[in-house]
Design a protein around this nucleic acid. Sequence first.
RNA 1: GGCGGGUUGGCGGAGAGGUUACGCAGCGGAUUGCAAAUCCGUGAAGACCGGUUCGAUUCCGGUACCCGCCUCCA
Length: 461
Amino acid sequence: MVEIRLTNTKTRRKEDFQPLDPQNVRLYLCGPTVYDRAHLGNARPVVVIDVLVRLLRHVYGPEHVTYVRNFTDVDDKINAAALARKEAGAPGTLEELIRQRTAETIGWYHADMDALGAARPDHEPRATDYIDQMQRMIGQLIESGHAYARDGHVLFRVRSYADYGKLSGRSVDDMIAGARVEVAPFKEDPMDFVLWKPSDGDLPGWDSPWGRGRPGWHIECSAMSYELLGESFDIHAGGIDLQFPHHENEIAQSCCAHPHGQFARVWLHNEMLQVEGRKMSKSLGNFFTVRDLLDQGIPGEVIRFVLLSTHYRKPMDWTAEKAREAEASLRKWRGLVAGIDPAPSPAPAVIAALADDLNTAGAIAALHELAGQGDAAGLLASAQLLGLLGEELGDWARGPDLSVLAARMESLRAEAKAQKDFSAVDALKRQLAEAGVEIRMTKDGTELLPGAGFDPARLPQ
RNA sequence: GGCGGGUUGGCGGAGAGGUUACGCAGCGGAUUGCAAAUCCGUGAAGACCGGUUCGAUUCCGGUACCCGCCUCCA
C-alpha cells in the first residue's frame, strides 16, 4: 500500500494520510462562485486536486473515493450581474435571470475545466439546492447557543467556539486589534459573522424563521459537506486565501453544529497564482481566464502541465516561457508514446513523488527521466496518473497529414543533390519553418511534424 | 499592526545532513549540403549573519528583501 503524506494546514505538518474509511475516502473542494468565467487562479486547485483524486483512486480503488466540489450560486456579484441584465431590458424575473446567469456560468466552467483534463467530481452541489439544510444547521446553532438572531440577521458567536482562529493561527483579540472588521450595530462582537441576512425585493431570498433572506457565504460548505460526506471526512481543500475567514468559519459552524464530528481532518491549501511575477488583477491588466488562454491557442494540456510544474504549496508564476517549454515537452513525449500501450502501472518514482505531499513538479522530473531512458510505456502510464498524454487532451498535438509536403521536399532534395543547388529546398524549408513545422531530414528521408506554434494556415500550398 | 509563505546555478524548479535532481538555455562533439531534430559529453547554485554537527544549501535562531491573507478573489 502506497503511503500518502500530505501537509495539513491545521497542524502545519506533513502527516501520513490515514482515511477514516479506506472503502470511502471523502474530500471536499471549495468550488467557484458562478458569476463569470473561471480565471487561471481558479484552475489551480481544480487541477491539483484532480491529481490528488487520481492518486487516491489509484491507491484505494476507483470506486472508493468520493469527491465533492460545490457551486456557489448565491452571491452579491451574481445578483449584481442579473440586476444589470434586468435593467438593460432582459426579459424575465430577477430569479430567472439569476438562474440563467448561473446555469450559463456553470456550463462555461465545465467546458473550461474539461479542457484542462480535470475529471468531474462525484457531486457538484449548488448552494441554492441546499437552503433547507443550511436553515436547519443555522437553527441548530441558535438552539445550542452558538448563534443569535437579530434584526433579520443570524450571526455566529465566535466567542462561543474556543478554537476559533486555530486553523489560521489568529486570536480573536488580535484580529479585532487589526480593526479591519465590519462593525455593525446588530453584532455582539465585531468578529461575529453572518449565517443569514435579510433580502429586500431586489434580491433573491427564501422564507425562513428569521424572515425572507439569503444565507451567508460560509454556511453552504458546512451544510453541503455534512449532507454529502458526513460530520467527519478526510480532506478539505482550497486556495490559501480561503483559510481565513472562510475555512475558519466553516470549522466553527460545523464543529458547533455537530460536536461529535471532526469535520475535515486534513486541510490542504494551495498558494496563489501570479502572472509574469505579479499578482493577477484586473487593474494590472494581467487578468485572464482559462478561456482566454484556450482561445489564444494554448492547449488545455499545456496549461495543465504548467499548473503542475510548481508544487501546490508555493506561489506559482504563469509565464509565456513556461507555456512554450511545456508545449515542447508534451510534443516530444507524445511523439515518444505514439502507438504505444501504457505499462500496467505507473513508475514507482512518479507514484512516490505524488505520494510525498503531491509533488507534481518532482513527478514531472521523473517523467523526463523515463523519457530519457526511452521507457515509452512507463512514461505513458505514469503521465496518465497526472492526467497528461491521454487521448482526450491530445487533439492539439495531432497534426494534419504532411506526407505530401514531405514527399515534395524529398524530390526537391534529390534534385538539389544532383544539381548542387539547394536554393529550392531551402526556400521550402523556410516556408515550413514559418508555419511552425519541424523538419527532420536524414539520409533516409524527410519527416515533417507540427512543432511549437504550428499554424496550418501558413503551410505552403 | 496581526497571521502565513518565499528567497536554490543564465532561466524555471525539486529532493536529500555527507554521494548527478530534472527541464530549458549555453558550451564541445557526432550527424547534416547547411540546418533542425536526435544522440554523446560538459561547466554552473543554494539571500545574509550566527548556532548545532566530524560535516548544512538541507536542522535551529536572527537580519534583509519579496509575496499573500486579514475587503464573501482559488
